[in-house]
Amino acid sequence: MVEDTEFREQVLRRAGSEVLTCIQCGTCSSSCPTAHLMHPSIRQLVKLVLEGRKDEALNNRTIWLCTSCLLCTVRCPRGIRPKSVVAALKDLAEKEGIRSPDAAYEELFLKQIRDYGRIAELPMTAKFLLSSPGSALQSMEMGLEMAPKGKIALEIDRVKRPEEVKKIIEELGK
């Protein structure tokens, strides 16, 4: 029984109808570099989609953990693109107003690029600390290790024509 046929169709339209041919072999999950953090696994995510279980498919961390490395897509024996399934779910989640747990950070990240054309690490860290101190503190430890090794840039670096990057981002946002 398919719980929500329309939801299933929405995903299939975006990710391709070959998703229907999934044999649940788990090659995608076991190829995934972040699999250990994912619950449900990508394989289970595909199953949730096929069963039209919209709530479970959209409300989970898995879809936000995908790094788009495409190993799942390269190895799938059925020629399915599990990465596209994840992308479709992210897209639908955003339409439903479901935000990634790291949405705050991602927005800051994007703003930086829009403003400077690349990431300026120090101001970025400062702003992140202000906006969501909880999450930021978690990453502080690594930052402290990196700083003495010269791995954190202190100065604000701009690209030559940041307005062009801005244009690109605006174009993409349409």
Binding site: Q24, C25, G26, T27, S29, S30, C32, A35, H36, H39, P40, S41, R43, Q44
Partner: peptide, 8 residues
Amino acid sequence: EDTNTGEV
């Protein structure tokens, strides 16, 4: 992935 348990 042991697909019966979901563990990688």
